[in-house]
């Protein structure tokens, strides 16, 4: 068994022991289910709690299935990202702070194995949560509103996961270069927010931006067609992820462990 496998198995075991493997998918399921359910029951909810004057006639267009799923993904983009970043912020920094990272690195472990096992652990929990949550959301949407073609859902899932992988990679990077868990989360959220904002404001010039993944996701859901700029964005996102990972490993090598 390679050292990478040993470290990766330790990551998974840790997530099982501290129940991360349970509660993060549950949060994603809740975030995914609440939208179709609330859209479906909106007229009744308004009826009961709305306190509207007698005789008001409300025309509430029920959103289409694809629209509901888009809203779900935009929820994942806010709360989902927040949960992922908060749960991943200490991935390297906490181990450096406690000194246990040093205890690992005094064994003949390549620096890349350490960082890449952390990355793989984060990707695992991210993809599991997104997959389960999104499938639950799709199931409720087809139950209550309408069935969205599975291919579209699957394609959107794949594209959206690239964006989350990007976010998680950034978290790992900042967790490697900074020490305080809080500042790691703050900086990561800030950078992700900045990328999204700049991308939506300067859309024309930002066709390569990783944040366009969220737009491509919507496109696929609504029309089933991919925009031509997807390939460019896909390539740059993967390239950025690779560069960020390599720099994380290099920076980790320079850090003093066991202070």
């Amino acid at each position: 068994m390679t050292q990478w496998t040993v470290l990766y198995r330790k990551e998974i075991k840790e997530m099982v022991r501290n129940y991360k493997i349970l509660w993060i998918p549950i949060v994603f399921i809740l975030l995914g289910v609440i939208k179709p359910v609330s859209s479906y029951y909106m007229p009744e909810i308004l009826d009961t709690f709305g306190g509207l004057p007698e005789g008001t006639i409300l025309e509430m267009p029920t959103p289409t299935g694809a629209e509901v799923l888009m809203m779900v993904l935009s929820n994942y983009g806010m709360l989902g990202v927040l949960i992922l970043v908060l749960s991943a912020m200490g991935v390297v920094s906490a181990e450096r702070q406690s000194g246990v990272a040093g205890m690992v690195m005094i064994k003949p472990v390549p620096y890349s194995s350490y960082i890449l096992s952390k990355w793989a652990g984060l990707i695992t929990i991210t993809l599991i949560s997104l997959f389960i949550g999104y499938v639950a959301s799709w199931y409720y949407t087809s139950l209550l509103i309408e069935t969205v073609a599975f291919e579209h859902v699957f394609q959107s899932l794949v594209i959206y996961s690239i964006w989350l992988v990007f976010v998680v990679t950034l978290t790992l990077f900042f967790s490697t270069i900074m020490k305080g868990n809080g500042s790691v989360a703050f900086v990561t959220i800030f950078v992700v927010f900045a990328i999204s904002t700049v991308t939506s404001i300067l859309g024309k010039y930002m066709k390569w931006s990783p944040a366009t993944m969220t737009e491509h996701t919507g496109q696929v859901l609504l029309s089933g067609e991919l925009d031509s700029s997807f390939l460019l964005a896909f390539i740059t996102t993967i390239a950025i992820i690779i560069v960020v990972l390599i720099s994380s490993i290099q920076i980790f090598k320079q850090k003093e462990l066991l202070e």
């Binding site: 050292q3 040993v6 470290l7 205890m103 064994k107």
Partner: peptide, 22 residues
């Protein structure tokens, strides 16, 4: 090290096996 640190959620045996495999 002067202040050895461990994964506190592991048992003593688990940590040794982990260290040995590394």
């Amino acid at each position: 090290p002067q202040y050895p640190a461990f994964y506190n959620w592991m048992s003593g045996k688990e940590f040794l096996v982990f260290a040995g495999q590394l």
